[in-house]
Nucleic acid binder design. Structure first.
Lengths: 127, 127
DNA sequence: GTCATTTTGACAATCGTTTTCGTTTTCGGC
DNA sequence: GCCGAAAACGAAAACGATTGTCAAAATGAC
């Protein structure tokens, strides 16, 4: 793994939640790195290919990334306000997805689940 | 609702699954309509604002739309091959999302759930 | 050090989507 | 049927995220 890629991964680790490629680029430039935007994208693609980071899409279609503690299957509870994310598991959901797929004759069933909310800190901040 | 908007809605109804704005534009042009791409986007935005159609993002970040039979909360089981979608419900998932949010102090919890698979027809076609 | 390979980054290109803006259509009153 | 205001349209330009190109720079093997 190259130095640049390490830098991107570390920037992701330091962030508490999901960040877009552009965010990370800005972060890295802000701390003095001379990295290019292209390289950030390449690094993120490589990291997500190797399963080291999770990717998801915002409603606006932007891809956002996060370094995940766990490498097993899990989902995220994401704060709408600050982007902070908690990894959660849901065996019930896994089973349900599998069952619902089978019931309709679908094979090779996968699923995406994201839970959004406002975290305690953020709702306190508003008041 | 204008004529153009009606046309877009009808095109969506005739399609069996999720279609992108560009797909629908192509469909409408193919059947002789002189509609513009801008209008298709506007119609889809209006339809999704009024809750008449469901929107989701593909992994590539493209927005896809579908006319929904039910106007209550539901999710989709989507075929990877042909895009055909089945509306499904999952009380268990709703409860789980709510519970997991509450457990971590999140309020105003929402969630997105999509299930993907290969439908019977499509897996037959491959063989 | 030298050559080959890989990585990098500035820049251009792409693609879905949105905005702009002048034109056309629709519609309520007359 | 005709008029003017308001809404809808569509072509083209603008946009923003992402990807492709390609020459320069870093790295590694010898």
């Amino acid at each position: 793994m190259s130095t640049r890629r390490e830098a991107v991964k570390q920037a992701l680790n330091e962030a508490s939640g999901f960040r877009s490629a552009q965010d990370l680029y800005a972060d890295l430039r802000a701390e003095g790195s001379k990295i290019g935007l292209t390289t950030v994208y390449r690094a993120l693609q490589a990291l997500s290919d190797s399963g080291e980071v999770d990717v998801l899409r915002t409603d606006e279609g932007e891809a956002v990334y996060r370094a995940c503690a766990s490498d097993s299957h899990h989902h995220h509870l994401v704060c709408r306000g600050c982007g902070r994310a908690v990894e959660v598991e849901g065996p019930a959901v896994e089973k349900w997805a599998e069952a619902v797929g089978a019931k309709h004759g679908f094979t090779d069933v996968t699923h995406t689940v994201e839970v959004f909310g406002t975290c305690a800190d953020c709702s306190a901040r508003v008041n």
